[in-house]
Write a protein that binds this DNA or RNA. Sequence first.
DNA 1: TTGAAAGCGATACCAA
DNA 2: TTGGTATCGCTTTCAA
Lengths: 355, 355
Amino acid sequence: MGKIDNSRRARKKPTAAKAAGPAAARGARMTDVARLAEVSIMTVSRALRHPAVVDPETLKRIHGAINATGYLPNRIAGSLASQRSNIVGLVVPSLRNSLFAETVKGVADTLGADFDLMIADSGYVLDGEETAVAAFLSQRVCGIVLHNTKHTPRTRRLIQSAGIPCVETGNLVRRPIDMVASFSNRKAAFEMTAFLVGKGYRRIAFVSLPLRDNDRARERQSGYLQALKQFGLPVDRRIVLESTPGLRGGAHALIELMKVRPKIEAVFLTGDVLATGALLEANRNGWLVPDTIAIAGSDDNELQECVSPALTSLRFPRYDIGCTAASMLLNRISGNLPAAHIVDLGFQIIPRQST
Amino acid sequence: MGKIDNSRRARKKPTAAKAAGPAAARGARMTDVARLAEVSIMTVSRALRHPAVVDPETLKRIHGAINATGYLPNRIAGSLASQRSNIVGLVVPSLRNSLFAETVKGVADTLGADFDLMIADSGYVLDGEETAVAAFLSQRVCGIVLHNTKHTPRTRRLIQSAGIPCVETGNLVRRPIDMVASFSNRKAAFEMTAFLVGKGYRRIAFVSLPLRDNDRARERQSGYLQALKQFGLPVDRRIVLESTPGLRGGAHALIELMKVRPKIEAVFLTGDVLATGALLEANRNGWLVPDTIAIAGSDDNELQECVSPALTSLRFPRYDIGCTAASMLLNRISGNLPAAHIVDLGFQIIPRQST
DNA sequence: TTGAAAGCGATACCAA
DNA sequence: TTGGTATCGCTTTCAA
């Protein structure tokens, strides 16, 4: 003997204070595990990151020590040391809207347990997005997913100079910050309008969310206008509306549109639950759908299928978009070059009784 | 001259490699800002954390340097050094369900820009929650919000020994891990059942989501049963159902219930969009609501108000719950003792035409 | 297969 | 009001 027993404590803490905080429940550190398992701290680190190169016996001792101490790796320290984090940042326009929830879910499912997800909403405002991105970058996220595809110049600069992968998902832009996984809002709106024209409707109204700071709504309106033009139909600005969101937004829009003369024959409401709101309003007023007024929507969901009459709608692969976005991120994080910077996941028209 | 110019570079990096990674876009560090502003790194740190104690002139120089370098604070390093993070972790049963989105939004809004939000879903499974909590704890979150109030023993132990504040929000439990902000699911179901009894209905069916791992559904069924008992009504197990989620779940449940003899007079569907699904199904079948069958729901929302007939429903203050949960967390993070461990935000019955 | 030492980029404490 | 210095807990690099 002679030497003092150093099997425990050993937390050289010469400085005073801080010794016992309110809870003092400081968890075990890697050092504690190492001491208990009688190996160096490096071996513990390896046991966690590269178990294959560690002797099975040693590994066993280490896991025993981990359980005994209740050790939880400190990823903050790990990230600082390794200069890389396992956090992905995601910005959606609104946390309330279940549309975005699909994409969020796709991202989360694909990231799996090895990555954590940080979420912020922009409130549909470009500056909100910038703030969120700056915060993410401060947390040194390893990748970013943005739903919006219109950004402040600083947002683009921040992400690009951070040098981390980024996937935009809201619209199939030509020049993404880095990568994009989406569908073409313009094309979708064009096709739906064309579908209505094909059904014989001529006076077709269009309703979307406000275009301000919303490139998706903007693209859709543009697709609608483009279709009218292509089919030689006149544009009547009185029947091209921007609406507040919600069922009531759609209801009000329909009421306004029904007052316009000459009467409209069909209306395409895109965004949020506008179309459903319009349909329910038509039902309340006894306006026959599609005979008095045909209604088409977008963002197909169970509700649009269950109302009467069921709504003709556009189906967007939102979940897949989330999965794809996350895959693209993971691929790049693994050090690969992107297979493609622009991925078009497409869309479908689901024809039902409302048209 | 003589001495070598040391105004730039100076990043003593004797070791090779790593010099130029794929992007090499390493951002500026606090040291770089300090050098440019000709102050010590500590002064820069203070300028960011406690600007009040820094000389205004110095502050100005530092901000100039920050802009010039495009410096973004490294919160990983900051958190490690200060032993505290600004990340709050949130676990919801499902990222898809817009019910939870309300609470998430409340939490996010209340946390504000100084905190970041990490989100995970448990998939309605206790082990999923445990995994998420362990991941959060590894990230050293400064607080946790859980929607579920039933947990694995390890989940409770992990949070308690981490010594960080935690708020549960799904149900008003008696013995929370730490704190709870919610309403009583049991009481809400009891009151709604009592309301139906008060309306003269006697044979009242009950539909909820599966009870497994779902304490909220369990509590609601219990409240329903308790009400029947209190009013001296018999329990018929054939009309107490657990349903799959979604509009279709509610629709199927109603179809099953309508086959039971003697006929039921009312049905209370609670959870997800079951009630709306049932109502739409009744409409499709021409069953008059409330004459043939009265329908009551929960989680009141715009849709329940817009269908015909509008649904009688329970309104839960989900957004407020999120706000309150975040406030309770922030309060504790500021070092205060909790004003209350159990906060009951209550609920409301919204009577409409469906009953 | 394992270990020693040098950081990672900030903050805390104390001294000036 | 400002600066020096010792960490924070882990990973990287290199040597054994």
